[in-house]
Design a protein around this nucleic acid. Structure first.
Length: 147
DNA sequence: GCCAACGTTGGC
DNA sequence: GCCAACGTTGGC
């Protein structure tokens, strides 16, 4: 899962009182579908910093609460307000994540791209801008082996 | 249903 | 700040 550290970073998550956070504001259907259908409580997630000096994997989280309607879609004062999302038929879904640990170092996008083993990884495919995307078990283990 | 125009993402 | 690559919108 990607976040711009200037908006919400791994340290922000770590410093939350209960170390959890509703992953709100996602307005992409593919990303929504993954949060709604695929992510189960206890699943492990990489926290990825995007749009910053060193984009890359910075930490590990778990899914703390499975998919439920994104309340920011109903709030006219929220920048992610979506008037087309009817509270009776919510359009946007989020999950709660929980801090697990930071990686010992940032495993940068540049470094990931150097790994032949990871060439088929979703994150590294051309033009992929999804903020939520799947990681296979093998990719997960390989990335952690770089730590 | 097509597709041009526009908006967004995110690396560089 | 640039721009490639998508996604969305809306006229037809």
């Amino acid at each position: 899962m990607k976040s711009e550290p200037s908006e919400f970073s791994i340290d922000d998550l770590k410093s939350n009182p209960d170390k959890t956070e509703p992953w709100d504001g996602v307005r992409n259907y593919q990303a929504r579908n993954m949060m709604r259908d695929e992510m189960k409580k206890g699943d492990l997630v990489f926290f990825y910093h995007s749009n910053c000096d060193m984009p890359g994997v910075v930490g590990i989280m778990t899914i703390n609460k499975e998919g439920y309607p994104d309340p920011t879609a109903f709030d006219p004062n929220d920048k992610h307000f979506d008037p087309k999302s009817d509270p009776d038929k919510p359009r946007w879904i989020l999950v709660d994540v929980k801090y697990k640990r930071k990686l010992k170092r940032t495993i940068s996008l540049a470094e990931l791209k150097e790994q032949k083993y990871l060439e088929n990884m979703k994150l590294l495919q051309r033009g992929n801008r999804l903020s939520v995307m799947p990681v296979t078990k093998k990719e997960w283990d390989y990335i952690l082996s770089l730590e």
